[in-house]
Design a protein around this nucleic acid. Structure first.
Length: 498
RNA sequence: GCAUCCGUAGCUCAGAUGGUAGAGCAGCUGACUCUUAAUCAGCGGGUCUAGGGUUCGAAUCCCUACGGAUGUACCA
């Protein structure tokens, strides 16, 4: 008689029983005098003073023994055992205790004691129910073996964990700490930038023209204006307008949306930090990136090093700064600084590499880099000097105008940041955006549309500026030793269940 | 997109070669005034992801769909 819906019916019956006793299973008010962690911090004093305390929490284990029983309850700060005796709480409250299930929220008042078996507990004088659960909470049991918690019956189904993240957080403590860490990372970045006098801003998520990255957008519609709007793919073009306006240091931490493939490192919406500094360039962006992430490592781990899978990654400064050309030459022996596509194509053929659909020098160089170099860059490495044609918003190098002043930051083989000396020549910028628009007309769905309004702003004058983008999700993956972006996004995008 | 693997009770899993589904935990009933994966006795619980096929017979073999994981491609 007990599949899930029957268990739910049994719980509804208990609910009725509680109501029959004249008790509201969902009272409007609750009270607590202390968090559970307080009981642990002031253990000796509480044991001596026998001061009455009231705590609240969720039942995570329950053991009944006739006229006495135990329950482990947990709040955000910790766990403690409740010790419930018929002769202490009285018949009414004992009845309530008997009607409590795993997952119910309760309020307990009592004094701190140590049981005969040596467990620090709250000996209850009263027990009150705060919320009755209707569904069976998956049972996860833990046993301490040699100081290590061995878990039984884990809540481990990956799909269920993501779809019912609340259960994941409730039942898997390491998940809770992952997301606390994520919050700490964002807080640290805010504090770091605020201290450097960056201003935090918010720019539109709904944009009439999207741009600032190479990606397909989500499209939506505004009813009153009767126009289509795009969910932003980057904050870049609006933040630069603010530099034009005289904000010298700005940043935004927010969601970008890209309508493309999903995999281990891509979620359709993701969190991005972008910052812009007037009178800076890509070199100052390297400095600030190093300082920020190194500071983060020290803040979180009290060390320059973190463990990531098999690797120990050291954020000790300075980090490697390597030209893409140099790296390719090192791995392949091929010098691509002359952007000779014939030579590169010959190399592709010699080595049986798949030839990309476009065979312009820039695309071929990137292809070589991704194939031979990217995955090898485990320690933090700034890869500099990208081909101009794949960087429409970056300034050219003076010594070789085929390349731009740009870097991508690679850590553990993964792109974690992207920065450049921002192009501020309005005529050059217009030409490059026109080239993008042409690619778009030619069928490149990821090329950016022309943004006249952005060009207008640049024509009013943007000072030399360094700009930087860092993927917060990927940074969090690094610092929490996760290889899937879904593990660091609370509610990752999933296909609907049928 | 392609390839491979996976989907059995609320949770974690077992179900060789096809023979008609099982365990632990959780739940229910009872016992128990110091337990902590409580214990003991008993009881129940399943559209084996869905649909089709092969077969006397399918959780098992085949096909399709759905969902997930991994790899790969794409993502400057």
């Amino acid at each position: 008689m007990q599949n899930e819906s029957q268990i739910i019916n049994l719980k509804r019956d208990k609910l009725k029983k509680i109501r029959k006793l004249g008790i509201d299973p969902y009272p409007n008010n609750s009270e607590r005098t202390h968090k559970i962690s307080y009981l642990h911090k002031h253990k000796d004093q509480l044991l001596e003073d026998k001061e009455s305390v009231t705590i609240t929490g969720r039942i995570i284990a329950i053991r009944r023994h006739g006229k006495l029983g135990f329950a482990n309850i947990e709040d955000m700060s910790g766990k403690i055992q409740l010790y419930v005796r018929y002769d202490k709480v009285g018949a009414d409250d004992y009845e309530i205790y008997k009607l409590c299930d795993l997952g119910d929220f309760v309020q307990a008042e009592g004094i701190a004691v140590v049981t005969e078996r040596g467990e620090y507990s709250l000996l209850c004088h009263s027990v009150k129910i705060l919320t009755k659960t209707l569904r069976p909470i998956p049972t996860v049991k833990e046993k301490m073996v040699d100081g290590k918690a061995v878990r039984y019956d884990e809540f481990a189904d990956i799909e269920l964990r993501y779809r019912r993240r609340y259960l994941d957080i409730l039942l898997n403590p390491e998940i809770k700490s992952t997301f606390i860490k994520r919050a700490n990372i964002i807080t640290f970045i805010r504090n770091f930038l605020n201290k450097k006098e960056f201003i935090e801003v918010e720019t539109p998520t709904l944009q009439p023209i999207y741009g600032g990255a190479y990606a397909r957008p989500f499209i939506t519609h505004h009813n009153t204006l009767d126009i289509d709007l795009y969910l932003r793919i980057a904050t870049e073009l609006y933040l630069k307008r603010l530099i034009v306006g005289g904000f010298e240091k700005v940043y935004e931490i927010g969601k970008d949306f890209r309508n493309e493939g999903m995999d281990r490192s891509h979620n359709p919406e993701f969190t991005m930090l972008e910052l812009y500094e007037a009178y800076g360039d890509y070199n100052t962006m390297m400095d600030i990136t190093e300082a920020m992430i190194n500071g983060l490592a020290i803040e979180l781990n009290n060390s320059d090093d973190i463990r990531f899978g098999k690797h120990t990654i050291s954020f000790k400064r300075p980090w490697a700064r390597r030209s893409m050309i140099e790296l390719i030459k090192e791995k392949t022996g091929l010098d691509v600084s002359d952007c000779d596509s014939h030579k590169m194509l010959a190399f592709f053929k010699e080595n049986d590499l798949e030839i990309p659909s476009e065979t312009t020098p820039g695309v071929l160089i990137i292809e070589l880099f991704e194939h031979y170099v990217e995955k090898e860059l485990i320690q933090p490495t700034f890869v500099t000097d990208f081909p101009k044609e794949v960087s429409p918003l970056a300034k050219s190098r003076h010594d070789n105008p085929m390349f731009v002043e740009r870097f991508e930051l690679f850590i553990a083989g993964q792109e974690t940041g992207n920065a450049f000396s921002e192009l501020n020549d309005p005529i050059d910028q217009k030409e490059r955006l026109l080239a993008q628009a042409k690619m778009r007309e030619g069928g490149d769905v990821e090329a950016s549309p022309m943004d006249e309004d952005f060009l207008l702003a640049i024509e009013y004058g943007m000072p030399p500026t360094g700009g930087l983008g860092i993927g917060i999700d990927r940074l969090t993956m690094l610092f929490t030793d996760n290889t899937s972006i879904k593990e660091v996004i609370l509610f990752p995008q999933m296909k609907p269940e049928k």
